[in-house]
């Protein structure tokens, strides 16, 4: 990539309009060429001025009240006192009892400890520590859902791969994975609505066997989920609709609504 190409990407980035592939190319080039960073800074500053052409709208007072309550709760490190509204960026719940044995890694633990804990811990960290890079990075990581961290890791890997399948009614499900990172993330849009007492369940279909990779809920049909357990080359990633919390038998009880071949 030459500097002209990079300047083009930087402009698209500042306007928030890059495709995922271009975003990846942009971030890679940005790391490789710190001497081009001035394009990024200048374009971001210019784009932010565009916000001046928008009419101010006073948000409802409830938002302010909720935010102040959230930060107060997090600042006092009351891990259990954070109000429900604090859980905006919560990781999707994954049931630990459905987890493959080899998934007891950091992210697995992070999920089971729950977002309130991380939110409170991260906020306390932010209070305790100075402005050191490392600590900022850590606190940022703690506040980012594991699925998003994993997706970043995958996309930064040289062997990042993805495959997309369409749902019958127009939705789209994309699997992102990397062997070197050893993780797979499913990004779904337009998932069908399911009943309150149902969950989506993820599966690695390996030969004739289906291995559960956790359950998830979708928000307005969208979800970004880190698959629990290790993916193997050639696995098919499938999603089924199961009773809430996952199939009681440990095996799919319905046909997959989508299946993605990763071979």
């Amino acid at each position: 990539m030459n500097e002209q190409d990079f300047a083009e990407l930087a402009a698209g980035h500042a306007l928030g309009s890059l495709s995922p592939e271009d975003t990846e190319a942009f971030e890679t080039a940005r790391r490789q060429h710190p001497e081009w960073e001035h394009h990024v800074t200048a374009d971001a500053a210019t784009a932010a001025l565009l916000a001046d052409a928008v009419v101010d709208v006073t948000p409802p007072p409830g938002v302010r009240a909720a935010l102040l309550a959230q930060i107060a709760a997090s600042a006092s490190s009351g891990a259990q006192s954070a109000p429900e509204a604090a859980l905006i960026e919560q990781p999707l719940p994954l049931r630990s009892d459905r987890r493959a044995p080899d998934s007891e890694q950091e992210h697995g633990k992070a999920r089971r400890w729950g977002p309130r804990f991380w939110f409170a811990l991260a906020a306390s960290l932010a209070l305790l520590v100075g402005v050191g890079w490392g600590s900022v990075f850590v606190s940022q990581q703690l506040n980012t859902p594991a699925s998003v961290i994993a997706l970043d890791q995958i996309e930064a890997a040289d062997d990042a791969q993805s495959a997309t399948a369409m749902l019958p009614d127009g939705g789209e499900v994309t699997a992102h994975w990397s062997e070197s990172v050893g993780k797979a993330v499913l990004v779904s849009d337009g998932l069908p609505a399911i009943a309150d007492d149902e969950s989506f369940e993820l599966w690695f279909v390996r030969g004739d066997a289906a291995i559960s990779a956790g359950t998830f809920a979708a928000e307005d049909g969208s979800a970004t989920v880190l698959l629990a357990g290790a993916m193997e080359p050639g696995d098919v990633i499938a999603v089924t609709v199961e009773p809430a919390g996952g199939s009681p038998t440990g095996q799919p009880t319905s046909d997959p609504i989508v299946a993605i071949t990763t071979a």
């Binding site: 935010l67 509204a85 905006i88 960026e89 991260a122 932010a126 402005v131 606190s139 506040n143």
Partner: peptide, 12 residues
């Protein structure tokens, strides 16, 4: 709300 939470968390 997400925006200002992010501001709070990453102001450093």
């Amino acid at each position: 709300q997400e925006v200002f939470l992010e501001v709070w968390q990453s102001a450093a």
